Each structure stands twice: as C-alpha cells, then as structure tokens.
Simulated assay, not measured.
Amino acid sequence: MTDATGTRTAEPPGLDLAALRAHLESALPGTTCGELTGSVIAGGKSNLTYDVSDGSRHWVVRRPPLGHVLATAHDMSREHRVMTALHGSQVPVPRTYLLCESPDVIGAPFYVMERVEGTTFRWRSQLEPLGAGRIEAISRRLVSTLASLHTVDPTGVGLGDFGRPDGYLERQVRRWGRQLDASRSRDLAGVDELRRLLESTVPPSGEAALVHGDFRLDNTLVNDQDNIVALLDWEMATLGDPLADLALMLAYDRLARHPEGDGIADASTAAGYLGASEVVDLYAGLSGRDVSRIGFHLGLAFFKLAVILEGIHFRFISGRTVGDGFNRAGALVEPALAAGLESLKE
C-alpha cells in the first residue's frame, strides 16, 4: 500500500509485535522468518491499520482504536468474516490469514490479512496527475465494483445471517435520529423537517444485498493499471438496501464540492471523474436495480453525514477531540441538511 506513513519500528502504538509474532508462530507455524517491524497506515478514522514485516514478507493487521470501550462498535470478527466470505468472488478483497478475538495477545482483538499493492486516492491533487481519461476509467471501475458487490448472493457466500434486511431503512432513520438527540447542542436549520420527512416517506426496500456501509474511492486500492484491486474498511458492512451505498458515495462527493468541505475527501471532484447522474445511470445499467427512489436514499445519506458531523462538532466544543480539522466539522452540518431536504423534494 502506498499510503503507509511513519517510521518503521519494533513497537508501533497499540501493537505488541513480539506478542504478535509469537501468536502467528503458534497459530500458523513457519509464517515469519525474523523479528517484526511495523508502521501505522494513515487514513483511517476508526480502526487502526498496520503494515507489518519480517524483512521479506508484509502483512496488514487491523485492531480497534486505542482506548475504545464498546467492543460491538469495532467488531474485528465482523470485518474478518465478510472479507473471508468474499475472497474469490467478483469483489476484490485481501486474503485473510488469522483472526484473534482475545484481547490477551496485543491488548485487543485483531486480524491479519494480505497486503495488497495499490494506491488509495483520497485527494483531487493525487488523481489529477493521471489525466482525465484515466480518472474517468477509475471512476467507472469504482461504480462497477459497487454493482458487483450488490450482485453477490449473501447466502451463497455464507453471509445469509449477516444482518436484518427487513426494516433496514426504518431502522436507519431511527438510529440516526437517536444519534442526533445524543449530540444536539444548538439550533440547526432544517434538521427537524428533514427528520420528519424521512420518517414519513420511507420507501419499500429493494432486494437485500451486502452493503459496505462506507463505499467511496478512498476505501479502495487502485493498481498501476487503474484497476480496483481491493475494497477495504468493512466495519459498517451489513445486509440491507444497496442504494444506501450508492447514495452515501454521492453525498460525500457533493459535500466535498461545498465551500466549507475542505476536510472531505475530494478525489471525486477531479476532472474526468463521472458526475452524479452518470454514476447513477452507470450503476443502474450494471446492477439492473431500480434507482427511481434515489432521492430518499440521498436524503438519508445527508442526514447521516449531518449527524456524524454534528457529533464531531459537539465533541469539539466539549473539548473531547484531539487533532486538526475537527473545528471545521460544524460548518458543514447545515449544508448537509439543506442538501438532504433538496434531495427529498426533487
């Protein structure tokens, strides 16, 4: 992966490499041939990802964030299960090697997977040097990957019990409404109207599919031939309405184009990248799914993002955030709400 940052060390934060090596040798004898070094792979905002090497081979290790409290919010077995099930399907995922659900080895559950060579494109400045033609090809392949994911038969790959697709949209509206109530600290134009409209216009769900939950270009790896070679970060995956993935990807793109959206990944704004209507049309053609109710799904996606951003803002003003950029989250909440209302009324 080309987005690994930081100096390789024998003790990266949150990962006891000696204990990891001992566990690997016990569970998979002969895996390593020397002492391990590692570095944190930058980019994730939740689970921690490490590039680990014995000097001749590389692996990727995932664990929950440091100091997390709720194990259910960072379920390593869930990520491991879905990628293991999808390996060998039309959806590109890394090969998984080992799951450790006990916190006794490194202080938290973790899993080990293949390191796939590729680039994560998060920013327009990374994509633009490729030129419009290659950028268009990458964006088309991203949509194709999404359509491929949504054509996987969950039961056929052993994921028939991976979620509760019945009532998925209603539960999403309730869930994000409760999240809003938990972090609401100020008056927000449009928030109550958007919530009421979502609650009163929930459409019937489409045929259930495996939903990634955070599908976007910067959760993939792209190789030198501009192919999507891995879809990553499955912590939000479940069974549900597949248009949720499509809508969230489009919502991220729209917020990245807003004047206050400089903290949102903006690779999708590069010249050559498919526009929103082109993405929807291509997805519909490849998946065969009815996208006529995409407006509701966009409204829900913007509501979800608004609630997440408001939660970040609430933690920032409460002095409970560390790092840069959190001060800007609050400015995007009302634009997200306005975009959600516009989507529902179109």
Rank of each mutant, 00 (worst) to 15 (best):
H23E: 11
Q172G: 01
I308M: 08
L282R: 15
A265S: 15
T238L: 02
Q179W: 04
P103L: 04
S343V: 03
D290I: 02
R81E: 10
A73M: 12
P13D: 10
R328D: 14
A132M: 07
L146H: 06
V191N: 04
S185R: 15
H297V: 01
L248R: 13
R254Y: 11
H150V: 02
R184E: 14
E128G: 00
R124M: 06
L127N: 06
G330P: 03
G158D: 07
R141I: 03
R315T: 11
I106V: 12
A10Y: 11
R196L: 05
P92L: 05
G6M: 01
T32M: 03
L159T: 10
S200M: 05
E346T: 15
R63T: 14
L286G: 04
M236L: 14
R328F: 13
S125T: 12
W59L: 08
H258M: 09
S185A: 08
G38M: 09
S56F: 15
L305H: 12
D153G: 00
G299C: 02
G107N: 03
R63S: 10
G311Q: 06
G288K: 08
A4K: 07
L15E: 06
G319I: 10
S268D: 14
L15T: 08
T2W: 13
E278Q: 13
L248I: 13
E128Q: 07
R62A: 02
R171G: 00
L86H: 10
H258K: 14
D16Y: 07
C100Q: 15
T72Y: 12
Q172C: 00
S343W: 01
K304T: 06
V333I: 09
